[in-house]
Amino acid sequence: MKALAAEGPNATELGRDARSERWMLFGLSLPALLLVGLVVVLPIAWLFLLSFQTEGGAFTLANYQRLIDQPSYRRILAMTFEISLTVTAMCIVLGYALAYLLAQLPRRVAGVLMLGVLMPFWTSILVRTYAWLVLLQRDGLINVIGEHLGFWQKPLALVYNMEGTVVGLVHIMLPFMVLPLYNSMRAIDRDYVRGAANLGAGPIQVFWHVYLPLSRPGLFAGGTITFILCLGSYVTPAVLGGGKIVMAANGIAGDVELYFSWGPASAFGVVLLVITLTILFTASRFARLDRIFGGGA
């Protein structure tokens, strides 16, 4: 190989061109790389550093020790993942049905309905969360109607608990699920569905063997976004969880307030980050995305 490259006519010059082109490309992408480094890598590195420091800046493992000693951290983490998984699962079920419906409709109609799905994006999370409070609380609309119609006698505990928090979060997260799902469903050529039917697959088999696998990129993207955003929820659990639902961000905010240094909160953040990355890494292995995005390697 090497011998060949060096011998042919203009081989040296062409090789040099190729190298300078690579350098140029690197040079052009340098600002972007720096920006990413600055915006993403640096803060995480800083977080990491802080988590090993005492108030005075000396090295310590106390921040991590505290996470082990104090059971509330484990419970907060468990609760955070439990809620995030529940919300993601519910968003998958609801979002898939919704996106499927939209994908079957003519594009114009679907576009209008999609606006409805996206509408909540234009109101703040706080407003939407309080709206749920108005609906779900003890004297809220749902309880009033339910009692009035005699479905139940005593007000149901719909809010200030896990259920209320999940409802509020599902509402907020649904668009993040529907959008990528809808896009990946729209990208499914009608011929695939027809092809499967032609080969003998009934509607359920078409869905299971063809439609679902082909919409998996959207499912995975939507699921990942939803899950990650859920992990960082602050407002919704604070308002709808009634203080009983403490998610990671609420715990971190509490630590920032309570301790003299950033260390405890940073350590908690680092642990959350590591667990999240591990989950995502594992999930992406299972998702077999390489198959879907092609590139037969």
């Binding site: 971190i252 909160a265 940073s266």
Partner: peptide, 11 residues
């Protein structure tokens, strides 16, 4: 503080 939600609040 509610605006700062998430693990990067400190950042």
């Amino acid at each position: 503080r509610e605006l700062l939600g998430g693990s990067i609040a400190a950042l």
